[in-house]
Simulated assay, not measured.
Amino acid sequence: MITSSAAHLRIELETPHLLAEKLNAIVSSAWPSGEYDQDAMAFFLTCFEEGGDAAQGWYGWYAIDIDSLSGARTLVGSGGYFGPPDNNGVVEIGYSVLPQWQRLGYATEIVKMLVSHAFSFAKTKCIIAHSGPQNEASQKVLIATGFKEVGIDEGNLRFELKINT
């Protein structure tokens, strides 16, 4: 996983063909994937610009596969937070894996890394995530990584993982 920065996001928004060079990885023409779109990139860029150094690590991360034989690096997905923990210690995660890399364990690894990173900060008490009701694969990832379904928010299933679970 590589943490994103304002520089990464500017490249994605303004000159996306240069992202491969910045990440030193192959970037599929299908990138970006899922809900990580131009609006999300612009939102995260604003967060970086307003948050300065304190924002680093609290927004986007790139998931890179490194082939064990050739050493080739390929961007397979992304994950991140909607910001640092709020006043109640709650942080929300999101993640996406390109279709050709789905069902290979990447989403699970992304979620595990996000959980570990978030809980490494004493302020984090609870991590939430949302999944569409039809997205069974995402729901399985969340359950497998310790999240519990706790309700519905705006038509999406809400999952939580608390520090004491």
Rank of each mutant, 00 (worst) to 15 (best):
A40D: 11
A40T: 11
M41P: 02
A42Q: 11
A42F: 05
A42R: 14
F43W: 14
F43S: 12
T46H: 12
T46S: 15
E49A: 02
E49T: 04
G51Q: 02
G52P: 10
D53S: 13
D53R: 10
A54L: 13
A54Y: 10
A55V: 14
G57Q: 03
Y59N: 05
G60E: 10
W61V: 07
A63K: 00
A63M: 05
I66N: 02
I66S: 02
D67Y: 06
D67L: 04
S68E: 13
S68R: 11
L69Q: 15
S70K: 12
G71K: 00
A72I: 13
T74E: 13
V76R: 03
V76D: 02
G77T: 00
G77M: 02
S78Y: 03
S78N: 15
S78M: 11
G80C: 08
Y81N: 10
Y81V: 12
F82H: 15
P84C: 08
D86V: 10
D86H: 00
N87D: 15
N87A: 15
N87H: 14
N88S: 13
V90R: 11
V90L: 10
V91E: 07
Y95W: 06
L98W: 01
P99M: 00
P99T: 04
P99C: 02
W101E: 08
Q102N: 04
R103E: 13
L104I: 04
L104G: 09
G105K: 01
Y106I: 05
A107W: 03
I110A: 01
I110H: 03
M113A: 15
M113V: 11
V115T: 14
H117K: 14
A118S: 09
A118Y: 07
F119N: 05
S120M: 07
F121P: 05
A122G: 08
A122T: 07
K123N: 04
K125M: 11
C126R: 15
I127Q: 06
I128T: 11
A129Y: 00
H130A: 09
H130V: 09
G132L: 14
P133Q: 13
P133C: 10
N135W: 01
N135R: 03
A137E: 09
S138L: 03
Q139W: 00
Q139Y: 01
Q139T: 00
Q139E: 07
V141H: 00
V141I: 06
V141S: 06
I143L: 12
I143K: 04
A144G: 15
T145H: 04
K148D: 11
G151A: 05
G151F: 04
D153N: 14
D153E: 13
G155C: 05
N156H: 12
N156A: 12
L157P: 05
L157H: 13
R158I: 13
